[in-house]
């Protein structure tokens, strides 16, 4: 939870006597990467790519050049085999991009500029259903991968509300009450999306955001992932700040509004359930993101549920709740 951030903060202290260094890494064999999710009520999304050397060029061409095309991807929901086919953003009409952005979590202008390719199926049978186990079977030119995840029953939050801080007139966090089911092993992830629009412009380059929807898709802040180890069967109130999209700074992600929700926002809380293996991977992922530079994290690779490659195939049990911040 937020404990992770607390421990990591020590790392900040040491950044005062550092210097940049360079070194060459030898050529190594690359892994196949599967990053995918299936949410209740939504289509599956599967990205396939290969890893690159850590110090390889970081431009878009280099990164997107690792995508794997023409793979055979089959999803099984315990009942049927469903073929997932490749769909690229270059083939999608611009008018549909916001919807794709909402579903995938990729900013719309990026879908427009770069060619994101996913494997999915628009068949009704492919839509995620709570309680099912979803398996993937993937064949590329050179590799075979399998993965399996549970899409758990969703657990809704109750009594969600916004509260501003005493010292900050209109800025604050979101709160909700979670009642954890009695059985052990429940994992959770919190997302929040502001669906209202900007009322004014910010400093350049954000000087024309007025009228645009604040968040294009649900965002999970660091610390969004937790399980019921300390709170099994308990009812407790959780609170969250406003997260950011990776390293993409939005108009209000710097300055006084950073991390806060604001009076007047309309926020959709997407509170999800995840299975244990997904929890372990995402917890390690957030730890890696939060410890970007700390000496106190052990250099362990993210625990992967993918056989034959690395990455994550995650099922999310979704419950939505809208909060109007007063």
């Amino acid at each position: 939870m937020k404990l992770i951030i607390a421990i990591i903060s020590i790392g900040i202290v040491f950044s005062s006597c550092s210097k940049a260094i360079e070194f060459d890494l030898p050529e190594v064999e690359q892994d196949v990467v599967l990053v995918g999710k299936i949410e209740s009520g939504n289509f599956p999304i599967v990205f396939l790519s290969k890893t690159q050397g850590y110090f390889e060029p970081t431009d878009a061409e280099s990164i997107f050049g690792t995508n794997i095309h023409d793979a055979n991807v089959t999803m099984n929901d315990g009942l049927n085999d469903i073929i997932l086919t490749e769909l690229c953003s270059a083939d999608i009409p611009d008018s549909l991009l916001p919807l794709v952005s909402q579903v995938t979590g990729i900013p719309a202008q990026n879908l427009q500029f770069f060619n994101y390719c996913i494997y999915t199926s628009l068949d009704a049978l492919a839509i995620g259903v709570e309680g099912r186990t979803y398996s993937l079977y993937i064949e590329t030119d050179t590799d075979t991968l399998t993965a399996s995840t549970i899409l758990p029953m969703s657990v809704p939050l109750t009594n969600t509300y916004f509260e501003a801080f005493e010292s900050l007139d209109s800025l604050g966090f979101l709160f909700g009450t979670l009642t954890d089911p009695p059985e052990e092993g429940n994992g959770y992830r919190w997302f929040a999306q502001r669906i209202n629009t900007y009322k004014y412009n910010y400093a350049a380059p954000y000087d024309n955001v007025m009228g645009a929807q604040k968040d294009a898709f649900p965002i999970a802040p660091l610390g969004s992932v937790f399980d019921d180890k300390f709170l099994n069967g308990l009812s407790l109130e959780i609170e969250y700040n406003r997260g950011e999209v990776g390293n993409l700074e939005g108009p209000d992600d710097e300055g006084p509004e950073e991390g806060y929700f604001k009076r007047g926002d309309t926020v959709v809380i997407k509170f999800t359930t995840i299975d244990h293996l997904t929890y372990l991977h995402l917890r390690a992922l957030e730890n890696q993101a939060g410890t970007n530079g700390s000496p106190f994290a052990s250099p362990g690779n993210l625990p992967s549920s993918v056989v034959g490659g690395i990455g994550l195939w995650a099922g999310y049990g979704v419950s939505l709740d809208t909060v109007i911040c007063n």
Binding site: T51, Y54, G105
Partner: peptide, 12 residues
Amino acid sequence: PEKRYYDPIENR
């Protein structure tokens, strides 16, 4: 760190 990949779902 020897290798890396971009996770488009997490944008990291």
